[in-house]
Design a protein around this nucleic acid. Structure first.
Lengths: 220, 220, 220, 220
DNA sequence: TATGAATGAGCATTCATTCAT
DNA sequence: CATGAATGAATGCTCATTCAT
């Protein structure tokens, strides 16, 4: 059941096996519905050993979140070449992101769904990672503006909202790509680049969309 | 303890009280952590009555999802005037969406977080609503293309991806706006229109972003 | 399996059945070794019902302590006639005490052994009762001194120590009487009266035992 | 972490370290709440070693009881000079007793509380020691009676009860003295001598307390 | 219509104990 | 002599759900 039941292995190895099993179980069943029994069995060890190494369900879940967050950011980071132009960096990062989430659906479920849905402590853990990514995207937008010779054209608050929207769109597209058969990481990335980069460009070209003057639309 | 303990009231009213309590509890505690005890107490009725009316926790949750989905789509629908131009419709719809989610955080939590996190049956329930909204947005994009006299310029698959991205971005921005103090529905809508509509326009103007020709992708 | 499995009885009755079972189990197995499963089975109910009514093992134990303490003090109190002379009151009280402990060995075990051995909160609960009894005895000693026309002869600290010793001796004798076949409550009470009352009398007669002058007994 | 982690020391020494740790842990936590893990850590050895030397938790506890019982009786025995008069022997024995229990609260807790509270096998272990002490006290009472030239005045059963009461009072006072700040071993011994010896003397002077003739015991 | 009484099943956690080295 | 690795068996507690009234 799970891995071949190898006895007596060093702690570090066992711990990874346990995290593998936990990510899979948490990702598929959800945090609360996942039972420590199931995780232990899937890891091929007894429950007490899981507790000996990872202390509690909460700590185990936290360890999963941390590992998956690290893996995801590393995947994105190592897919990007900082010397290249901003759009190329974004394109590469998105491809790495969509590829990684497609290959690790359970890890992505843990990060995107489970961790956000089960209390502040867990959500905070993901927020750290997410902010790192948003910061990366924000920086790309700023670089792009500079490359377009329009440095101060965008107020900071606006840039933050744009980065947030871009990351949010990416997260949603990841789920969509995973759920829609036949949509590859490359296609998802292309769609998003089309959607986002064009918008950013025309924004920076100085032609933002302007809201209509409020006439009589207060819902009465 | 929630409502004043009124005896003998018509079934329809009681049911709504129960759903109110359930949405609040599910939204705040999460599906699994919410206990039928708590919901019954918050609704001011006894547990057997909840079962009499709503049969099981799963059906109760489903009923919550359906009610909140209906309320949300109705809010968006009634915020939009079909005769107006596409961008105005999108703008109005987004404002209605951000306003409604900000005013019903528990309902939005049920739809956006809880329902997606606890198994296919529930997720499917939201998917129905989501597809309705995506269809609405898709249609707006098509109209916009037509308005720009560029009917067939965008392949169907591409339009679907764009609508998906736009809706995903909106969902993320809703969470972001709810969590970031000082961000109003209008501001969130403006940010998204800037981001999306400009992108769509330049897309339709025939200048999509093109991926770099794949030459050597072993990042060495 | 304990009582005949009567279904559907009012809460108050069930609670007493549970306390009966709990006192018996705690008294015989000890607090920690007693399992809630065993108590529930002995009470003839399911475990959840025990929790529904008594909340936790700790609260259940506390409830046992309180009930048994109340019963014991009431037994002693109702065995004593406040109008009678002090020695008669003490005699009657001791007899009531030995009789009650002999008839309720589990309750006495809970009070005397278990409660004192498992943490301050529980011990404190018994201390309240014990202090009440010590106070009663102290008062008897004072009355006795007054009856012997020797009011101020005993310093307060000394009286406290004497009452403590008397109560302690009674507690030990209770265990002894319970464990030694053929020793009745009356005999235990007589022994203790002989031991204590004579001592008190000669103390009050002004001839206390005096320690030897310390010469060379410091254990080097 | 308890002792400095010395490797390779003779078995006898290691065993004492383990017993030290065990007595401390059992005395403070109680038999059941004490975990073998905690004991091993406090002793500075690994758990398997504890099992290698002491076989099981029960045997370890028994070993603790035996060692502490031996230490206590030895302390009392070595505090007493058999050539001295009976009252002096009792006085010296009590002082040694109160001193030892005050200096070894954990050991005393093991003997007086824990061992008695966790099943016959353990209680029996203490009973052996207790009977030795009761025998010693009994003998002192007999000697005292002889010294007072009243050899056969007290029936054996009565003497046994008196010794039991005296020892019981001493045990209670030990706990009282340990718990009441400012009460020394000497004071506790004095209080008890006053209480007991005077009583014994007047008993032997031929004036026992006599129960009232039972007339009408329905407390109306 | 409405509820007080009751439970089967499951879950996180802990502990005494033992191999294999 | 000494230990890191591992587990079977409980235990306290909770929850969704139902019955009898």
């Amino acid at each position: 059941m799970g891995a071949v039941k190898n006895k007596r292995m060093p702690r570090a190895v066992r711990e990874q096996q346990m995290l593998d099993a936990a990510v899979r179980t948490f990702g598929q069943r959800g945090y609360m519905a996942a039972s420590m029994d199931e995780i232990a069995e899937l890891a091929g060890v007894s429950k007490p050993l899981v507790y000996l190494y990872l202390n509690s369900k909460e700590e185990l879940f936290t360890a999963c979140i941390r590992r998956e967050a690290r893996r995801l950011t590393e995947a994105v980071r190592s897919g990007v070449e900082p010397a290249l132009p901003a759009d190329r960096q974004l394109w590469d990062g998105l491809r790495a992101f969509f590829t990684h989430t497609a290959q690790n659906p359970d890890g992505w479920s843990v990060l995107h769904l489970q961790a956000r849905t089960h209390g502040e402590p867990f959500a905070a853990e993901v927020t750290v990672m997410r902010e790192e990514i948003v910061a990366f995207v924000t920086q790309l937008i700023v670089i792009a503006a500079r490359e377009a010779h329009r440095d101060p054209s965008l107020p900071e608050r606006e840039v933050a909202g744009l980065a947030e929207a871009l990351v949010g769109a990416a997260e949603s597209l990841a789920a969509w790509a995973n759920a829609t058969p036949g949509v590859t990481a490359k296609q998802a990335a292309t769609t998003l680049m089309n959607f986002a980069w064009s918008g950013l460009n025309s924004l920076m070209a100085g032609t933002p969309w302007t809201p209509p003057t409020e006439t009589s639309h207060t819902e009465a």
